[in-house]
Design a binder for these strands. Structure first.
Lengths: 64, 64
DNA sequence: ACTAAATGTATTATATACTTGACATTAATA
DNA sequence: TATTAATGTCAAGTATATAATACATTTAGT
């Protein structure tokens, strides 16, 4: 399932996938795949994304 | 660095590493490595662990 | 002290996260 | 319309999460 919380948090910071990728040290395809869903990133990458976007793990990656 | 929050949350449920491994569908070594630290588990495994231990991602895996 | 369970740790193998490069499509803008 | 940035997606390669097996050490119970 898509991660729309991540997508909107990135939009709130006005960052492109490429910019977020650069800021977190991964490739654009990796960011794209996470937003697309059906992907299983590592916790360190999730934390790096959270810190760039000023959100917490629960806010971006917790699924109810 | 060691993940003592995970270790204590597991203790609070009175589960062995093996039991937590079985409940989350991974090997005991993986649980041990996560508690030991210097390890980078996937977000899905982190979420599975959280659900078994009745904690959230922020409670067990957020580092300040 | 003895025993068994739990834990720490190493090695080799496999599954998969992530990269690189490339190309197509969609949105934005002149 | 044309042009560019942003996004979606695919294939092949590399890095690493995780498994399986094994053994040593610590902890808990008798």
């Amino acid at each position: 399932m898509k991660n729309l919380k991540l997508k909107s948090a990135r939009a709130a910071k006005d960052l492109s996938q490429q910019q977020l990728a650069d800021l977190t040290g991964v490739s654009r395809q990796t960011i794209n795949a996470i937003e697309k869903g059906d992907y299983n990133p590592t916790i360190r990458l999730c934390i790096a994304i959270c810190k760039v976007l000023d959100r917490t793990l629960d806010e971006l990656f917790w699924e109810v």
